[in-house]
């Protein structure tokens, strides 16, 4: 017959933690790893089909336009300033600051999604023209799904912090969302360079 020896009391341990201490951070990071891998698959495909063409992009396609995509990638990269501001407020458990920050990020997300429509147009190709176009489209499309879903998630957090029953742990979740925003925006930079610049350089 076993008895219990109560050697460790965790009554005083907190319930709200941020960053690597939180299990949701690890879950978010694992999903980032999965999505990054998928982007690597898109890059690998793009580079693999390159060898089947003499010209890049292959005739009759023009090189992708680069002005608007540069504006949108810069916009996305710079949005991390607001993202950083928001995460400071979140970690301080400042509800008002978080509400404002989330509203700003929601607006940024909406603008970014609109800009992304032009990113597609500026590919100057249709996905069914040839393998180059297919590879370029799937790369942009996949990242767009990350952008779009992250936009929705930001809007949901905004609604929660403005209208819903907020508690301490939601700040931790909102912080994970900020971490994800860094990932989603910064991972677009090499994709952008690949899709919009390599046809000019190759």
């Amino acid at each position: 017959m076993k008895t219990y020896d109560k050697v460790l009391d965790v009554t005083e341990t907190p319930t709200i933690v941020f960053g690597r201490r939180a299990s949701t951070w690890w879950g978010t990071t694992a999903f980032m790893a999965i999505e990054a891998t998928t982007l690597v698959v898109c890059i690998a495909t793009y580079l693999y089909v390159r060898k089947n063409f003499h010209h890049w992009p292959p005739a009759p396609l023009r090189v992708p336009d680069v002005l608007r995509p540069t504006i949108s990638v810069t916009f996305l990269a710079l949005s991390n300033i607001a993202n950083y501001w928001l995460s400071r407020k979140v970690r301080a458990l400042d509800k008002r600051g978080t509400q404002i920050g989330l509203l700003v990020m929601s607006t940024i997300a909406a603008i970014a999604i609109v800009l992304r429509v032009f990113d597609f147009r500026d590919l100057n190709s249709h996905w069914d023209t040839n393998a180059y176009a297919s590879a370029a489209w799937i790369s942009v499309a996949f990242h767009s799904s990350l952008l779009f879903l992250e936009g929705i998630e930001t809007w949901v957090f905004t609604a929660l912090f403005w209208f819903g029953p907020v508690e301490g742990k939601h700040f931790s979740d909102a912080d994970d969302n900020c971490v994800y925003w860094y990932f989603m925006t910064l991972v677009w930079v090499p994709m952008y360079a690949l899709i919009y610049w390599t046809p000019r350089l190759m």
């Binding site: 495909t45 693999y48 089909v49 089947n52 063409f53 292959p58 996905w127 069914d128 023209t129 040839n130 393998a131 180059y132 176009a133 297919s134 590879a135 489209w137 799937i138």
Partner: peptide, 12 residues
């Protein structure tokens, strides 16, 4: 009608 694996349009 993408062409990832269609040799005729540069896929493989």
């Amino acid at each position: 009608d993408t062409h990832f694996f269609n040799a005729a349009e540069g896929g493989d």
